[in-house]
Write a protein that binds this DNA or RNA. Structure first.
Lengths: 194, 194, 194, 194
DNA sequence: TATGAATGAGAGTTCATTCAT
DNA sequence: AATGAATGAACTCTCATTCAT
């Protein structure tokens, strides 16, 4: 059951996401957010407990969604190659769907880490482990070259995450197309060549 | 000849770079910067004309250095493959040397664009053209696959740029090693396989 | 119906009028005004939008009152002589009632003109036309000498306006007495003598 | 003998007069004045002792000139009528020649009074006495009506002083013409009519 | 639930003034 | 005589937050 209060909360989170990402966390004021949802800034305090916690909730919400998506990939029985494709797809999808929150995470890392370090670290470690294991298994099965897994992982993640910097919803390619192009590129970069 | 004033200016730019990147542009105050260089905030105005211009100077300084590095690559006679290696090297080097300024550019894009859009755009367009031309020439010479140049460029740049998010000066690998590992990965990703 | 907010606003306008005229616009601070009404300077911003606009409101309020008074004179059917008496009366009354705002207008002309030039010009042009027409009609009816209307107008207005420089509420004469003395003096100065 | 230092001083006083009257005392900075005379603001302190004293010197200089002019009138043997003409002439001339300082005196009365009350009061009292005596003698000789001398004096002075608000060097009339027009107007306003 | 009022803290910025050189 | 450097005080204005209603 969804209460009216919870609906309002969603509205506020959603407006804040947009506004924070447009103006920077410090550059946006609670008045801006209040204006966007038709509430005075003092009324916002019925739904949030502070500006900082609002930011953290936004970002954590997004990270949890990513975590959930990756968990599904992890729990499905896939070859390393197919798993890599899914991991890339999840990441690109995440950056497209949660572009604003993702961008907030980068710029406001410090605030978020200071309030939710444990959970954030856990999510990223889980992600890193999944990707590393995938590359490792690929190599063990003779499909992939024995690369520096850490560095290659970071290259893949960096590329996927950078999608948020340039992707526009109205762009030429869907996120699946982008992800597949990325996969093809990275997969070949990893593959053993005869 | 370097005047004392110019030295102080450098000190201030350097302190501001660090502090802005730690606390966010809006999150850092001129007092913070003054404290770091042993000056009251009002005294800073002997060396800067405004907080915004200070930010822009920091970021533009870094971008100009990158531009200069890439211009050298452009003006050297290299095969496409070798040129790609150099482009990647320049980018990784830039992110390592100008980690903070690079990170500032991302989070404070809005402010910087509003004050120096023309120059910034020019630098990025020059960079994009150089990389695109390199991939195109590689393909024309039959070395590289005919990939979606735009998307692959963005993947490469995204990966290189993300170095700023994780590189630590004390890390296991030098920036050249990182760059070479990246190059190997991307080069193979592009290469035509028999 | 008058809200509490409007009452506070009036309080603030009134305090600001006094303080600005005592210390000069630039010489007075919002803290001074806040102190006078028992509010912190930041709280003033519930009632005003800026210090400059506060000044303009004060002065425009006064000028509008003068304009209204003169409009009544204009719309009443009077002989030129009687009309001149009323114009003088209105001016003296204005300077006595709005002494501070009048004085502010003189010292801070620049600011006010920069924010409300159109309205201010209109009011003064209306006033000048009314007085000039009155003198002209007096001359056409053979009552007044054919003087240099512009210069004599300025003399009359200058004299009336200067009342703000010396009038004290506790003074020997009421504003009507002052105005009538002025009128007698100017009327005779204009009259045709046999 | 005039030293270089005294010349510079004159330059500074003159520049400050113009700048203060254009921007308001508080609205103008010592930097503005320094710029106008080709000196850094700190160098100004070789010639002035403070911004406030600079203002006072400017205004006192002008008031002393007026005082001197009126003293000459006082020491010349003239009929009351002729003396009134000269007083008016002196006043108009003063407002035209010292327009800026006169305007400064009005807007910054408070500062000036707080630093040089005695001398300022003296000058004005001397002026007021001269004018009052002139009107009184005119009345005693049967030339002028027995008006309220204080009020009529203030009307005359107010009119003359207001010249600074509208006179432009390039205007239609010379200051003598303005003064004579004023005199004619006031003289008739005072005269006994048969 | 919603808000108007109030505020303390602090932002960036300006400026008159001092002082060593 | 001239100035660059430095500063403290003050400025206007913003904002997250609290609280009574």
């Amino acid at each position: 059951m969804v209460t009216i209060k919870e609906l309002r909360r969603e509205q506020i989170l959603s407006a804040a996401t947009k506004i924070f990402s447009e103006k920077t966390y410090h550059g946006a004021s609670l008045k801006d957010i209040g204006d966007a949802v038709g509430l005075r800034k003092s009324s916002l305090y019925h739904y949030i407990s502070s500006k900082e916690k609002l930011l953290v909730e936004i970002v954590l919400g997004a990270l949890r969604a990513m975590d959930k998506g990756l968990a599904q990939v992890e729990n499905t029985d896939l070859t390393p190659v197919e798993r890599l494709r899914q991991i890339i797809r999840e990441h690109v999808k995440f950056q497209v769907e949660y572009r604003e929150a993702g961008s907030l995470f980068i710029s406001e890392r410090h605030i978020i880490s200071s309030l939710a370090l444990a959970e954030v670290s856990e999510i990223f470690e889980r992600r890193d482990r999944l990707l590393a294991r995938t590359l490792k298994e690929g190599a063990e099965m003779g499909l992939y070259r024995p690369v520096d897994i850490r560095i290659v992982s970071l290259a893949i993640l960096g590329a996927c995450n950078s999608v948020l910097l340039w992707h526009r919803p109205s762009g030429r390619l869907s996120y699946e197309e982008i992800a597949d192009c990325f996969f093809e590129f990275f997969h070949r970069g990893l593959s053993v060549t005869s």
